[in-house]
Design a protein around this nucleic acid. Structure first.
Lengths: 196, 196
DNA sequence: GTCTATACGAAGATAGAC
DNA sequence: GTCTATCTTCGTATAGAC
């Protein structure tokens, strides 16, 4: 089955991206890591590396979006969404011995020299960040926070978790993420109670 | 004067790193950008690219540390330090048309395949993040916040600003950083007033 | 769909002249 | 200190057979 090979390649790309970054991840690496047949890359991904990366970012990003939506929808709890988001990131850090982070950030933090590539990739990363933000914000609004505040609060949540992940990689420790989590939980709780 | 050439090379490295990342920045690029003589790189930097990057991260990182210390020392104001940190980042984003971010994050977000390189670079990035954190935390403690809380609050400040910068690059907009700034200023103000 | 072979450029680094 | 030339490896991508 060919679609199986395709999926494996996209998955491998996401795993390699979060560790070595955009330029640091080569098509060769993806082939080796996925065990995919060498001659099939440009069959499945006519646009080559850019397309592979686009799909990997979308895959990883949409998975997070779904997670947030599930935890915040209906009778959900935004604080649980925060904890889950943090847990996912912490697991990635620990399981890669602090060599891996978030593939979306990895791509967003590098600007390729090639213009077209730059545009295509920032389009995906921007969409993912917007989705995360909307999902988080909706959960907060459902709990009584006003839309404008919910949006900026959601941005703070996402930005700080992502920033903490980078700090954890540098320090080979989950402490930055742990600290950010407790601060965020306290802040979100207070905000939901109308205290702040 | 040779030290002039040296400084230019380190400076150029920092500028290129924040835009293209670790793997995306080549020694050739640094030579071209700095206008330095081609044959002098390995004279000034015997360890080649790693050394160049180490010094660039330290240069950029220490400049921020100094900025924070100046604004928080003595009769200083932690909120002013936040605003200044944000201003610096916003200027980088706008002046590079959202193609450039923070060189420290750029390096910390990529794990080189080479072990020794990985160790050397995470040593610098870790030190810089620790310095930023200590500088911010000290400013908060001086204003009456208890040490443990100051440390985690400082981490939140730094992580969220850095995370927001990455989001801004993706979205070609300063809105994420603007939102984070207002949230942080509010939080810091409340914390200093003993409200939270 | 998948193979092997290969084109072509760019990467980091070094040698040896000046 | 700086030059030019070059070694070697690796990057993306393509060609043409199977």
């Amino acid at each position: 089955m060919s679609s199986d090979t395709r999926e494996k390649m996209v998955m491998s790309t996401a795993l390699l991206l979060r560790e070595h970054g955009l330029t640091g991840t080569s098509v060769r690496d993806v082939i080796d890591h996925s065990g995919a047949p060498r001659g099939s890359i440009y069959h499945h991904f006519p646009d080559g590396k850019v397309q592979l990366v686009e799909e990997a970012v979308a895959l990883a990003g949409d998975a997070i979006t779904s997670g947030i939506r599930q935890l915040t929808s209906e009778d959900g709890d935004p604080v649980a969404a925060i904890r889950t988001f943090v847990s996912v990131m912490r697991h990635v850090l620990v399981s890669t011995d602090f060599r891996g982070g978030c593939p979306v950030v990895a791509v967003a933090a590098e600007s390729p020299a090639d213009r077209e590539e730059q545009v295509r990739l920032s389009n995906v990363t921007a969409r993912v960040f917007t989705d995360w933000n909307a999902a988080m914000a909706e959960g907060l609004v459902a709990k009584g926070i006003e839309p404008a505040r919910a949006k900026s609060l959601a941005t703070l949540l996402i930005a700080s978790i992502e920033g903490a992940v980078v700090m954890c990689r540098a320090q080979h420790s989950t402490v930055p993420l742990d600290d950010v989590e407790s601060e965020l939980v306290a802040l979100a709780t207070n905000s939901l109670d109308g205290l702040v």
